[in-house]
Design a protein around this nucleic acid. Structure first.
Length: 871
RNA sequence: GGGGGAUUAGCUCAGCUGGCUAGAGCGCUUGCCUGGCAGGCAAGAGGUCACCGGUUCGACUCCGGUAUUCUCCA
């Protein structure tokens, strides 16, 4: 059975059991501060487990793309070394939200594996939670045990500890015992020798867990206590790649048809062979795995960058490039050439790959390129470190500096050192690394308290589309503290006019007013697990009263103007540049808007002007705001609404229309495009390969911009005495200035030449040395020039010049280099000693030095004393 | 969000602990050499040393801030 059929079989099986098949959520997570990427199938349903949202379907199934590269589940450094770890993988799952529980979950899992998929019953093992003796004092999951006992011989049921058989999604939140299903795919001979039961959970590559059935029945509080959940849920996850391995009779995930086409292509491109040598195989597996993770992320709209989720993607890509560089001898970009085969094998199940293929290739190629530059630079720096190393061991801090500052991978450092017969001080490296981590942690440490719940309100209502003020109650609040913001409170209201940050639009600010007139500022609004959270510095004295909350209307209106303008800009870009233009990110603030989009070239001045004119024509067109808050997704798309890759949409969506611009959008907008007043592009540039960024302003900001420019121009006109054409006036000023500069330079040269002629005549022979000490009217630079000019023609000079500049005294001493060597003279010492006559100090080189001081009156005395040095 | 680095000629970069009349390679201009080209030789132009402020007799160099950018950590 091929992988495509396996995926379909799973989904169809649960569909027959009354489950709704839903699409995979994006891999990149946007509204959960505790998570960067989807790392388990249940992520997109978290809000249902927490009880934040009402459940529409109580039985759901899907194949979810997951990425495990950061946080609690971090498999990145394992990938490639064995045959079953992955960064990106598919998780097949079926869920019950307060519907069926352990009995059906267990029976169906067994039915699917043994009857539908025909896996040999004798190769399967199951595990149940044995209970714990720690602070939680949990009992064994006898319910699951008894259910299994009815269908599986008891010796195949393993009692697992808390680490393996109690699932928690984080420090807080829903959790519960789980039952795992393991499969033993070893040969009969091996099975006879060592029992499969003894290898379960022992990291044996051929006795592997394929399915985890989690029974959510507790909620973990911030203080560590467990409480029972009101409704019990089932959350299961089966590794798709492993299932394929089992069903296709392979012993490695990488030998299934999920990976073999990619591996064949890697062999082709890098002229290598899979299955011959351990190191090469690791490198090929790393690359095959990572190209999937990176391509899917980019398709979900997450480009490599140097912060947050984007940084993780960059690291994955670089890890693959590094393995290729070291073990497959790839010296140029090559990863991007794998996108094609990936698209061919997975594009049907995940159409976003097909649609975004060109972009994915461009971005990867560019990233590879820049990393190869980094490597090249690092190799040079490493050479310098090696040269500077005395003993056999290279300083770990140096290696850390290479890594930390210049991005040169430490394992590559170690490898190169090894080739040169040196070792790396790993301890020093790790110490420096730990210091860096501690610094970051202490800077971004936040502690989150438990919610204090004041009233039970299942779903909070957002009324900000229609109102900017409301009478509200606090549903719950909690305290959070971080180094950056100090102590803050987060409150959830029963209803709110405050727009939470989302869809690029910033969260509303405003205030909350108590009955007796106290005002508490709301500094930000964000969405977390489908709840609208308001950030305040403090809490009302009596949180139980009714409050008035008011959104800052000025800021909101400016933001709305920018948001509507963003839609018009999107439309304009597609109209003028073509429909390949797709939104790749947007930031809508009150002061400006930023819009990133896919496009292959820099916009010409004409194109920019065209886009600006297009938007302004829509503004003058006075198109009214038309919204539909509840349209079925299908219908909205039929009407031509723009949807974004990597956004999570429900079945029913909101559409926003201005004239011919229709977008799926949850943001707030002006009532009429005319309210935007004017749209002005401030900058256009590149953010990544194939991605351009436009920054623009509207309404009040445009007024400010033009007023400011106008004021500047008037000032320029005034200072230039109101010329007819200020541009010409400035140009001619510049020309004249350059000409005058040249003239002055020439005059000074002439002057110096004359002076030089005069001074040469004044030279006095003292002990065979041409000596002169004199006060001159030149600045420091002029004297320096003069000295070197005179010194060019003779090698027996001793000069001391004094001058007064801005009330300060300056002495300069020049001694021909020959004299310095022969007579043991030092201009620096001399000038320092003479400096005391002018109440100052100085220094320089042995043949030329200067001293400055506060007392010009002492110049003459200093000049007189100079001759003494030659006697 | 926190740390580290970089910013010097059109491009790629040197410039060590403050004082070398700011340099190299490539490119550019002009002239010359070889029958032409590839090329070679010679001369020359080109720099607010990112910006603002400070310390100092003196700052490309040290300190603080800003901008841009690279990089690591979260």
């Amino acid at each position: 059975m091929n992988s495509k059929a396996i995926r379909q079989k799973y989904l169809d099986f649960f569909k027959d059991k009354g489950h709704k098949i839903v699409p995979s959520a994006p891999m990149v997570i946007k509204d959960d501060p505790t998570l960067l990427f989807t790392n388990a199938g249940m992520n997109q349903f978290k809000e249902f487990f927490l009880g934040n949202s009402l459940v529409k379907h109580t039985r759901v199934t899907d194949s979810q793309k997951c990425l495990r590269v950061s946080g609690k589940h971090n498999d990145l450094e394992e990938v490639g070394k064995d045959t079953y770890h992955h960064t990106m993988f598919e998780m097949l799952g079926n869920w019950s939200f307060g519907d069926y529980f352990k009995k059906d979950a267990i029976h169906w899992a067994w039915e699917l594996l043994t009857e539908e998929l025909k896996i040999d019953k004798d190769s399967l093992y199951v595990s149940v939670f044995e209970g714990s003796q720690d602070a939680d004092q949990l009992e064994m999951d006898t319910e699951a045990f008894n259910l299994w006992k009815a269908i599986v011989p008891e010796e195949r049921i393993i009692r697992g500890n808390k680490k393996d058989n109690f699932w928690e999604m984080g420090d807080q939140g829903p959790c519960g015992p789980c039952s795992e299903i393991h499969v033993d795919i070893r040969s009969d001979a091996e099975k006879a020798e060592v029992s499969g039961a003894s290898l379960v959970n022992q990291d044996h590559p051929q006795v592997v867990e394929i399915w985890n059935l989690v029974f959510m029945q507790y909620n973990r509080k911030a203080d560590g206590r467990l409480e029972n959940l009101p409704a019990k849920h089932v959350d299961t996850g089966m590794g798709f790649e492993r299932l394929c391995m089992v069903l296709q009779g392979k012993t490695s995930n990488y030998d299934t048809d999920v990976f073999t086409p990619i591996i064949r292509e890697i062999e082709q491109i890098t002229d290598s062979k899979y299955g011959k040598e351990a190191e090469t195989d690791i490198a090929i597996r790393v690359i095959a795995d990572h190209i999937r993770a990176v391509s899917f992320s980019i398709a979900d709209g997450q480009l490599p960058s140097n912060t947050g989720a984007g940084y993780v993607i960059r690291r994955i890509l670089r890890r693959a490039v590094r393995y290729g560089f070291t073990f497959l001898d790839t010296k140029g970009p090559f990863m991007f050439r794998l996108v094609n085969v990936l698209t061919n094998t997975m594009g049907d199940a995940f159409p976003e790959l097909k649609d975004q293929r060109q972009l994915i290739e461009n971005v990867i190629k560019e990233e590879e390129h820049s990393f190869l530059n980094t490597l090249e630079q690092g190799l040079v720096l490493l050479d310098q470190v090696v040269v500077g190393t005395k003993g056999k061991e290279v300083n770990g801090r140096k290696a850390f500096e290479l890594y930390d500052t210049y991005g040169f991978p430490v394992d590559l450092t170690a490898l190169i050192l090894q080739e040169k017969g040196l070792t790396l001080d790993e301890k020093g490296f790790n110490t420096a690394m730990q210091e860096q981590k501690d610094r970051s942690k202490s800077a971004s440490k936040t502690t989150t308290g438990d919610w204090t719940v004041l009233s039970n309100d299942a779903e909070q209502e957002f009324i900000g589309y229609d109102y900017l003020e409301a009478q509200v109650k606090i549903v719950k609040y909690r305290k959070v503290s971080s180094k950056k913001d100090g102590e803050q409170y987060q409150t959830v209201l029963n209803l709110t006019p405050f727009y939470p940050e989302g869809g690029g639009q910033v969260g509303d600010k405003g205030y909350l007013e108590t009955a007796n007139g106290d005002v508490i500022y709301i500094v930000d609004t964000k969405k977390e697990n489908n709840e609208i959270v308001h950030f305040t510095k403090n809490l009302p004295k009596n949180p139980n009263e009714i409050f008035k909350v008011v959104v800052d209307a000025t800021q909101r209106h400016r933001t709305e103007a920018n948001h509507t303008a963003t839609h018009l800009l999107h439309q304009g870009l597609r109209e003028i540049l073509g429909t390949h233009v797709e939104q790749k990110g947007s930031a809508v603030h009150s002061k400006y808007l930023r819009f990133d989009f896919s496009h292959f070239a820099k916009l010409t001045a004409d194109e920019l002007q065209g886009v600006e004119n297009f938007v302004n024509a829509r503004i003058t067109g006075n198109s009214p705001f038309e919204e539909n808050r509840n349209v079925p997704m299908e219908k909205a798309l039929e009407e031509g609404a723009m949807a974004l890759f990597g956004e999570k949409y429900g079945d029913a969506v909101r559409t926003v229309r201005f004239g011919k611009s229709i977008e799926l959008c949850g943001g707030t907008h002006v009532k009429n495009t005319g309210d935007i007043w004017y749209f002005k592009i401030r900058s256009e540039g590149a953010v990544a390969a194939g991605i351009r960024r436009i920054e623009a302003i509207t309404s009040d900001a445009v007024k400010d911009f033009y007023q400011d420019n106008d004021r500047k121009l008037s000032e320029i006109q005034r200072t230039l005495n109101n010329p007819q054409d200020p541009i010409k006036a400035v140009e001619s000023l510049q020309e004249e200035n350059a000409k005058l500069k040249k003239e002055v330079e020439n005059l000074l040269k002439d002057k110096a030449k004359n002076l030089k002629g005069d001074l040469v005549n004044e030279l006095e022979a003292v002990n065979g040395i041409q000596f002169l000490a004199k006060k001159v009217d030149l600045d420091a630079g002029g004297i320096k020039d003069l000295c070197f000019e005179m010194g060019n023609n003779r090698d027996d000079l001793f000069l001391l010049f004094g001058t007064e500049q801005n009330g300060k005294a300056l002495l300069s001493c020049y001694i021909s280099k020959k004299l310095v060597a022969e007579k043991d003279l030092n201009a620096g010492t001399i000038v320092r000693e003479l400096g005391k006559f002018i109440q100052g100090g100085g220094g320089g080189q042995p043949f030329f030095a200067t001293a400055g001081g506060k007392n010009p009156g002492g110049i003459d005395e200093a000049l007189e004393k100079a001759k003494a040095y030659l006697l």
